[in-house]
Design a protein around this nucleic acid. Structure first.
Lengths: 265, 265
DNA sequence: CAGTGGTCTAGACCACATG
DNA sequence: ATGTGGTCTAGACCACTGG
């Protein structure tokens, strides 16, 4: 955890272009962004306080905050109230095969993959879930939320919904190894298949932001994946949320020979 | 084009919660957002100036601008310098089948679909395009940029790249009906197939922002689609850019029986 | 407690688009 | 020429987090 102040002083050294050519806050943001990308500012590094940084760059705190806000929106920095501003470890675009299990689809051989089960509870199906699962709104479902991290940086929050009618022993089967595939197998479902993937953009809810360590309303990518048993019944509705710039989803037409035996996320 | 000021007065009427419960600028943004969603503020409506709005809501212009900035980021409003602030016609999530031709995948029977060819020119393949097309960087390519709009709201900017070696008569074949499928057919390629779709998030470049009528650096969705001829050669690299909240891409495993005869976007 | 980020104000100057 | 949005300043108060 080295001191970042000397570097910032070098960033602030070159004079800024006369105002109104390019806004000062953008020029500041550009320089900080470049430093984060090329490695002069490493992941998890802590920046000086806003007052100090404003002093360093020779602007008001308000102007400094504009630059910092932009960099937060782009996922380069992340502020924590009462604590400080930190460089977000740059995932810089995992390319991952959606439809495969998380760790397999991820093209990072040396990375440390983390998985945490956040909640596992019974609930009533919401309208969209119910339609996808071919059950009635309000029917009993199991809801499982999990968080995946790469090198301790959270990159994927998933909220899976399962119909209780099809998987009555979910909790017991999941307990042993925290594996959804185990649950399916315990209910006589040996394999399953991705039948639809939807991708959309949006803005993080408070809950999503907290889990992914983002500010609320940050832009995110959302995926909805529907998995079906061999007999065609939809058995899983999976809503995934990703920081906007964390990932590049790769979707190739399914090769039937390798369909479905993985613990897909 | 009705006057929006009376409505804003009603929005500003209820007192704001004591400060520090929820920031005033968020409360203002919430009320405006709600009005845009439920139709009290219609698409393309022009709002009063920032000074006037600040007066209406009883805050400083700076605070007013924070609320407006948030709504712009979310794609609800769009400011034009020297002109005014306008309600963005709410596409509110087209659900469209990627892999089909644009108009077919779009689930809006009554909508007016627009298509504009922006540029058509020869260029040298960039690194990523070259890799995807299995040619060398710098090889001659045809680059075609088009813009699609729904009810006059631009929702999709596509930049297609084709290898000149495979499609030497591109311009001539395209001229007649501005159809890429025609170009393929003129070169003896009767059908083609989507072999890969990639989806990622990012922030609009200046060019993308201008074409889509967004502010620069607004969050966007990007798609990369690779199409191949029946013999397996990649014949099209298509980079698409969408306003973040404009669309929900639906990707279903390809049904071989209906693969490839469309003028896919 | 001290330091941090989050919010808000009052007033100013500028570049731009339109009439 | 006017009104628009875009930028910037100086100073203030608050809530949160940590030691």
């Amino acid at each position: 955890m080295t001191d970042t102040e000397p570097l910032l002083l070098t960033l602030a050294a070159p004079a800024f272009d006369a105002r109104s050519l390019r806004p000062i806050w953008k020029q500041i943001a550009d320089r900080l962004h470049a430093a984060c990308v090329d490695g002069r500012l490493l992941g998890d590094a802590r920046l000086p306080g806003e007052n100090r940084m404003a002093e360093i760059f020779g602007v008001t705190r308000v102007t400094m905050r504009r630059a910092l806000a932009r960099l937060q929106q782009e996922g380069v920095l992340q502020a924590r109230k009462g604590v400080g501003i930190f460089v977000r470890p740059m995932p810089l675009r995992y390319r991952l095969d959606h439809g495969n299990r998380f760790a397999d689809g991820l093209n990072l051989p040396g990375a440390k993959i983390g998985a945490t089960t956040l909640t596992l509870e019974r609930a009533q199906a919401e309208a969209e879930e119910a339609e996808a699962l071919h059950i009635a709104p309000g029917d009993a479902v199991v809801r499982l939320t999990r968080l995946r991290a790469v090198d301790d940086a959270p990159v994927y929050l998933s909220r899976k919904t399962f119909p209780v009618a099809t998987l009555p022993e979910f909790e017991a089967a999941y307990a042993a190894r925290s594996s959804v595939r185990d649950v399916f197998q315990a209910h006589g479902i040996a394999s399953y298949q991705r039948v639809q993937t939807r991708v959309s953009g949006g803005f993080a809810s408070d809950a999503e932001a907290a889990a992914l360590r983002l500010s609320p309303r940050m832009p995110v990518l959302r995926t909805v994946a529907l998995n079906a048993a061999p007999d065609g019944r939809i058995i899983e509705y999976n809503l995934g949320t990703w920081p906007l710039t964390a990932v590049e989803l790769v979707l190739t037409p399914l090769d039937p020979s390798q369909t479905g035996h993985s613990d897909a996320d």
